[in-house]
Design a protein around this nucleic acid. Structure first.
Length: 225
DNA sequence: AGCTGATCATAT
DNA sequence: ATATGATCAGCT
């Protein structure tokens, strides 16, 4: 593993990310001295961690952005041959108690304030080492995008506060959804119950629907700059 | 084919 | 234990 220093500013980060465009995962793994898994069944975070190292992410602290000094979060985006996202994107854990926050101060909003999206081919018919990295884009939510996120977040948060978490499924939310996020379905966490009591439930995460990240990619191709 | 609920590895 | 990085795999 060759260490890469953190980028000094956003321009340097973007420049580094653009260099990766067109490289295969095998190329980049070889540069970094990393073995390439045959599939991701037991290596689900492999691509993200490879790109982190390549760009010099400060993987030190947990609750901070990937590039702490310049306030940028890194997300790889698994795309098909057409360049469209195949999967939803995990954002952060859903707080289930002690939720005394509003949208402006929410964990979700902070996480999404500035994101470097790095598209990576993820079609299973392409061998992992042959999958190519796409052109990265540095994104902050537009007013419209933030309004959509906010509406979903406020609706979901209200239901959690009312103790209705068990009634929330992945079908709720237009652009944002809540799904399980844990080692397995036996993992438990405290949450607010229907009568305000403490109950145990599965940990959940916020995910961006693939249609939403597809719109982000589209916007950047339509509106360059 | 797409989506939802479940799951896997690693670091701290 | 709980956060990070996500993809898997069965069902509709």
């Amino acid at each position: 593993m060759k260490p890469v220093s953190p980028p000094r500013d956003q321009a340097e980060l973007l420049q580094r990310a653009r260099r990766l465009a067109g490289l295969s995962l095998g190329d980049l793994a070889r540069e970094l001295g990393e073995p390439v898994p045959a599939d991701f069944r037991r290596h689900k975070g492999w691509v993200g961690q490879l790109i982190e190292r390549a760009l010099g992410a400060t993987a030190a602290s947990l609750a901070a952005p990937d590039f702490e000094a310049i306030g940028v979060e890194l997300k790889t985006l698994p795309v098909d041959r057409r360049g469209l996202p195949r999967e939803s994107t995990y954002v952060c854990t859903v707080p289930l108690e002690a939720i005394a926050e509003d949208w402006e101060n929410s964990w979700l909003r902070r996480k999404l304030a500035c994101v470097l999206w790095v598209p990576v081919q993820a079609e299973k018919t392409i061998a992992v080492a042959e999958r190519r990295i796409g052109s990265a884009l540095l994104w902050s939510p537009s007013a419209g995008e933030e309004a959509l996120l906010r509406r979903d977040w406020e609706e979901l948060t209200e239901r959690i506060l009312l103790g209705e978490l068990e009634q929330i499924s992945a079908r709720h939310g237009e652009v944002l959804q809540i799904r399980p996020k844990a080692a397995d379905s036996r993992a438990l966490r405290h949450a607010v119950g229907p009568d305000g009591e403490r109950v145990l439930t599965n940990p959940r995460g916020y995910y961006l629907r693939a249609a939403f990240t597809a719109a982000i990619l589209r916007r950047h191709f339509v509106l360059p700059g």
